[in-house]
């Protein structure tokens, strides 16, 4: 039996006004896979990621997540509940404590009671290493801590897939590793992850597959050891020579 991909992206096109941001992108991601998308800025990698939970609408093509096509509003909400998203700017809710940030959606979307939601939240805060910050407000935390809370917030919904949109790009250098460590641990547990990142070290260590995008197209995809050492495309080679 051939396993169904958990994310199926078929010939997706996306325009921002006259800019053709995605030019027919197709990609399958399988359960438990860690896929890292790299590429120059403006290559459409964040746009593609944001299409997977439909934060970005696409103009044509098809995306199916865990058997649910992204078409009706109902389906989109169903997919979003199964897909965790971590943003470059963290996007924690500044008017809520760390604990409330992690419990709110559990309560209003998953309909868990307060006690259960808080237990899950505290477990996750332990997992990302900052249980003592439960009652702090996001702005009292460092960037690295905020991003770890954001990961815990997404995990609290028991997502089947985690999307990371340049999760370390807004961080000071000394905080990048603490976030990457959490992501590595998650990858080891078998979480399906799609990561847009400039962290080539993370891609090398954690990715099953690295995707190189440029100008709205997937130029090349390969396991990291192949793509980083022996890329088949000239454009990939050029990009890697600039970032490595």
């Amino acid at each position: 039996m051939i396993e169904q991909p958990i994310i199926q992206i078929e010939k997706v096109h996306k325009y921002f006004g006259r800019v053709h941001a995605l030019r027919g992108v197709s990609l399958d991601v399988f359960r438990g896979e860690v896929v890292v998308i790299i590429g120059p800025s403006g290559s459409g990698k964040s746009t593609l990621l944001r299409c997977i939970n439909r934060l970005e609408e696409f103009d044509s093509g098809r995306i199916v997540v865990d058997g649910i096509p992204l078409d009706t509003a109902e389906n989109i909400n169903a997919v979003r509940a199964e897909v965790g998203m971590v943003f470059q700017q963290f996007n924690l809710f500044p008017h809520l404590t760390v604990l409330e940030n992690i419990t709110l959606a559990q309560k209003v979307v998953r309909k868990r009671n307060a006690e259960e939601a808080e237990k899950i939240a505290m477990d996750l805060l332990g997992k990302v290493g900052i249980p003592e910050k439960a009652n702090a407000y996001p702005l009292q935390l460092s960037g690295g801590q905020q991003q770890r809370v954001a990961i815990a917030r997404a995990l609290a919904m028991n997502p089947k897939i985690m999307l990371f949109d340049e999760p370390t790009s807004a961080l000071d250098p000394e905080m990048i590793q603490e976030v990457l460590d959490v992501m590595l641990a998650l990858a080891k547990e078998g979480m399906t992850m799609v990561v847009v990142s400039h962290e080539m070290g993370f891609a090398r260590n954690a990715a099953n597959r690295v995707i190189f995008m440029d100008e709205g197209l997937i130029i090349e995809e390969a396991p990291p050891q192949v793509l980083f050492t022996n890329p088949s495309q000239e454009r990939t080679r050029l990009f890697l020579s600039k970032v490595l």
Binding site: R80, F87, F93, V108, A154
Partner: peptide, 27 residues
């Protein structure tokens, strides 16, 4: 209120009105 707040709320599966009620309006 920054656009990311609505995006974060929606990506957690909240509906538009839940996001307004719990995230956007209180801020």
């Amino acid at each position: 209120i920054p656009k990311g707040q609505m995006e974060a709320a929606r990506s957690l599966g909240m509906t538009y009105f839940q996001a307004m009620r719990y995230i956007i309006l209180p801020q």
